[in-house]
Every structure is written in C-alpha cells, then in structure tokens.
Design a protein around this nucleic acid. Sequence first.
DNA 1: AGCACGCCGACT
DNA 2: GTCGGCGTGCTC
Length: 733
Amino acid sequence: MIFRVAIPTPLYRLFDYRPPVYETRVAQPGCRVRVPFGRREVIGILLTLEQDSELPLDKLKPALELLDEQPVLTPDLFTLTTWAAQYYQHPVGDALQQALPVLLRQGQPARFQHQTLWRAAADASLDSLSSRAGRQRELLTLLQEHPQGISTDALRAEGGNPALLKTLAEKNLAVAFEHIPALPGADAGTEILREAPLTLHDEQHQAVTAVQNAQGFSPILLEGVTGSGKTEVYLQAIQRCLEHGKQALILVPEIGLTPQTIARFKARFRVPVLALHSGLTDRQRLDAWLWAREGSARILIGTRSAIFTPLKSPGLIIIDEEHDGSFKQQDGFRYHARDLAIYRARAHNIPILLGSATPSLESLNNALSGRYQHLRLTRRAGNAQPPRFELLDIRQQALDAGLSTPLLQRIQQHLAQGTQVLLFINRRGFAPALICHDCGTPFDCTRCDARMTLHRQPPHLHCHHCDRQTPIPRACTHCGSTQLRPAGSGTERVEDRLHVHFPDTPIIRVDRDSTQRKDALNKIMAQVHTGEPCILVGTQMLAKGHHFPKVTLVAVLDADAGLFSADFRGMEKTAQLILQVAGRAGRADHPGEVLLQTFNAEHPMLNTLVHAGYDAFAREELRLRRGGHLPPFAYHTLIRAEASHQGLAENVLLSVRELASKQHMLPADVQCIGPFPSLMEKRAGLFRAQLLLQAGQRKPLHQALAVLIRLLQTHPEARRVRWTLDVDPIDSY
DNA sequence: AGCACGCCGACT
DNA sequence: GTCGGCGTGCTC
Ligand SMILES: [Zn+2]
Ligand SMILES: [Zn+2]
C-alpha cells in the first residue's frame, strides 16, 4: 500500500510514501498526513492509495502520522479544489492547502475549540464542607446555581475563587467536563426571520421568484443600479433558501465585508449568520469552518477565500458586486472566486446569483448569450432620482491642482445649499512626481521604472510600486538646482487647495494614508454622517461600500485616467469605477449631480456611458471585444517572468516559445503574443517580461500551457528566472 | 518555496 | 583565522 500525497510546494508533482508504521486504521483519500519532506516535516493531503510507485519501495520514506480518520475536505470541495488546481495550472498540494483554514494546514485536529466547564457533582452537598470553609461553600453554591456548567472566568466574574475548584474536585464535589460552545442563534427554533421583509417592487419580486423557481443549477445575473434594492432581493432569496433548510453562501468584495453589511443580515435573520472576516483569529476561523461544514451555520458571508467554505446542505450562492477585481487572487494560486462559485453551484445543482450595478463583460456576455438568466432592477427604491451626469470639458481651462473654475463654482453652489461634495481622484500623495524646474529631471525610484511620489504628510518621497521611501531631496541630482517642483496632483494637494478656496468648510481626505490609524475611517464616516456640509476628497476607498446620503455633488477630477490604458480592460474598469463613485451621490430627497472633468469630452465611449448608461456602454464594448477577438470572446493566459538582469526573463520566455513551436507542440489555434518586456520593465529591482497566450478554445490553450510549463521547468536559464502563470488574467499589462 | 551545502570577501 | 554572501541542487 502506497500513499500518494499532495505536498504544499511549488512543484508540479505528487510524492509517494509508505504508510506510517504502526498505523492500523484504513486511510481514506482526502485525509491529512504528516510526512518527512527533504529535511523538514510538512502536512500533505492523501490523494490516492496506490499499489506501487515509480520509485523502488526502499526509496520511499514512511509517512509519520495520519491526522484524520475522515477526509478533511468534503468531497465536493476536494473536487472543486483539484479541478481549480488543474484549471489554473497550480500545484495541487498548494491549492489544497489554501482551501483549508490555517490551523488545519498546521496539522491541528479538525475539532471545535473545547472549553473546560465545571459543575457540582450530582450528590454534592454543602453539608460535606466544614462550616469554616466559607470560600469553598460559596464556590459550591455558585456551581449548584449553574447545573449546565460554568467556566472559570465566569466563576471569577461572579465572585468565586476558581483556585479552590481543585480542592472541591478532590473531595468529589465538583466535576470538570469538556464542552463545545454553542453557536449563537443555533437554538433559535424554527423561526427564521427576526424582522419582517420589506415589500418588494415588481422587478425585485421577479428576481426573488426567479431564484425561488430555479430548478437545480441556474446562474442569474442581477443587474441593478445603485439604490435599486439588490440587497433586499438577496435577503428574500436567502429566506427561501433557509425555508428549505438549506445554507446560503455570500461572497462580497474585500472592502465590502463591513460590520454594517454583517449587521444587515443578522438583523433580518434569527438563524446563525457567520462572517468570515479578517479580524477572526485562526481558531475562530476554524470553528466557523466547522460550523459551516456541520450545517448549523446557515448563512456564511465572506470574501474571496470563503468560496472554499464547506457546506453541509448548500442551497444558494450569491456573489455581490460580481465585477469586483478582488474576487481574483493576485498571486500564487490565481483563482477567480466568482468562476469557482459557478463551478460549485453547478456541482451542487443550486442557483447562483451574480449581482452588480456594473456587471463584468464576462458575466454580461454569458447573460446576453442565454447561458445566464438576466434580470434587471432599473427602478430606484422610494422616490430617489438617478443622478444627472455632465462631462466637464477642461481643455483650455485653468486648473488649480486639477480643479477647474467651473467645478469650484459648482462646489460652492452645493455647499451653499447645505449639502456635501465628494471629489474622486485615484492618486494618493501630494504629487505623482517631483521635477527639477531648471533641467526637468524627475526623481525616479532606483529600483523601479517609476517616479517617486511626493508626500507632504509626513514629508517624504515614496515609490508606490516597491515601497521605497526617501527624505525629500534639496537639490537636483543632475544639475544641482534647488528649484524642485511637484508635478501633477494627488489627494493631498487637492486637499491643500480646497482649504484655500473654502476656508470655512471641513475638507476630509480619505485615502490609504489618512485612514491608516485604526478607527480613523470610522471617525471620518461619523463626521460625514452628521450631514454638515463638507468636501470629501479621496481615492477608490470612497467609491466602494460607503454611502453618503447628504452628498449631492460627485466630481471625478480625472475621468481620462484609464481611458487610453494599454490594458484592453481599461475602459471597462474606468466605466465601473465612474458609476461606482457616482452611486455614492444623492439618495431619497436630494437628486445628485455627477461631474466628470475630461480633456476628451467627445470620447465616444465616455459619452455612451454618460448619456446612454452602462448597459449601452457594455454592449458597445462587447462589440469591440468581439471584433478584436478579445475576452470574453477568446481565452487568455499570461506567463509572467522576472529576473535580476535585464533581458533574462524575456530571453527565457522567447526561448521556451521557440522550443515549443519547433517541436510543433503549440496547437494551431493558440497564438503567442510576445514575449515583451512588461510595461514597467523594472520593478522592485527585478526586470520583468510576459508572454500572452490567446486562443478561441480553452482546451488547446491548456495544452500549450502544459508544454510551456514543462519547458520552463527543464530550461537551464530558467533557474535564474521566477515565473508565474495567470489563467484568465484580469490585468494584462 | 524552503533548506542545506559549498566556496570566496571583510570582520573580531 | 571565522561569519556570512547567495549560486546550485534536492525534495517520495
Ligand atoms: Zn536639474
Ligand atoms: Zn520603486
């Protein structure tokens, strides 16, 4: 009998072991094993039991320990993960490891946290204690008041002295026992709801009905403008799922798993709601994972990695903001949680709801071609009016830190009417460059092909690509001039100028730097929610999640950023970001106004977006993608490589591409684009290049990739090159 | 990726 | 004389 084990390592192969000595239990595939690996010990997953090995038996080491009697991953998750490892061409051992909670990766038992509780012995009586043992009598009385058991901490809180428990135990008056803390809400009985559902308008009702009527696997794209009540659809779809005794899994973007989001689910439902957020300890995470697997957790909310949560009786998967980039892991095992969710829903034969105001072109194309149901929420709840969009042509306009005079006037008007203003600029720091006024030399990062960003709070130069930081220099390195000027503007500079233009108005900057301190963001939100007039200046952080009901003016200072991006997804991402920012403005009684500053007021796509809406924009963009044979009408895989010397990464990629084509190993349908040096060739001291594979079908692309991986593994030069694969990349530069 | 082995520069 | 730099090789 031979154990074939998947080991968490970047190696694309499995490892064979003899069973642990003295092990008599039957090992099942899917169980964890502790094995010697090189000069260390690791935890692997038993994949199969084999009769023989390619290696002679005496070359095999024995496994050290079988850690589980039952497979640690449910069969469906095991299948999902091994399929994903294959699809994303990632070593299966590493993929499986990432599907497990940290404590299980470390070899901890797959058991709930036990708590030691104490209770009085059944026949214990105060009479058996001397009347002078006052503290012991007190303690025993306390124990008797808690027949279900009490922890030492709770005893102390009630004035008992836990140090005396041992004495009582020796006299057979107190007993310790292990107890698994109950899941809050698990005893709620049959009542599902805590509060009554809202009344649905007809579009919402249709959506809920569609989920309810879904027979088996049915993907549904729910396209709903901001404020159209997607969340209420989620809640009522979940309610139906719970009524059938099933569990619901909800994935939200990284930034969206806020206490408010969680609170909304807990307020509606009595059943146990578990959020798998980053604040959990490893122990809490494992317990949540176990509660989900055991079936008592009924609603699971989490970010990307929550797609690997085991479910006893899955009934519904929801992907909120399905277009969000954070669902794709951006290093190592580069899976897309939304795509895995589709796979999972198919495997479970259940409905899956993809919600967004600005669906990804991938999902939209699936909806338009009939693979997904397409439901729209076009009406806003209540009497809310959609915001009015306006392109503000800033050609030949004087700009003060990116602020045009018409914009400043408009800000003034809104402040005067007592409402708030939100300015969006996707650039933090004071200025994106510091340049010598005499000779024009900028301060570049020594480790990257990039400018150092000037920061004023606190003053320093900072490379946003490698994190290198330096003091602000006094003189130009090239000509010695001390006339150094900031070029361009970021959030800090805009904030600065706004203080000058609106000295009596609070200016609130929201970016990674201003919200680093814990609770800083909460304080900002509290201030904004007082409703007093103010100007918010910020980056993406402002665009996602938070709602600002008193904001009536949203301005995008640089709507052109991303318009002419090298990445073919630039336009799509820009549109999604603009609409997301716009969605922050105006709710209920205040109609919102959205101003886009642009040097390209005639840009056709920008005009389509602003005047005809996202749907029209997306259809046009899809048409262009189809014409260009680009995703979603073709499949991409990117091979990225980096090395410490210029040209090395590119040469290795070129060499494997040529080897593959000489050996006629590249299917005809697969096109190699590149290799090219990356757009920013040098980053963090490494020189980068990439090779893009494109094909009309997945299968030949997969074959080509397997060939190239094999060549990369055996190529002598490739040992000095770090390479990574990205199947279905979302950034292609 | 780890982790060890191995052979050459500036430190006590 | 050694501490440690990272090149190179291996993991059942
Ligand atoms: Zn100069
Ligand atoms: Zn840098």
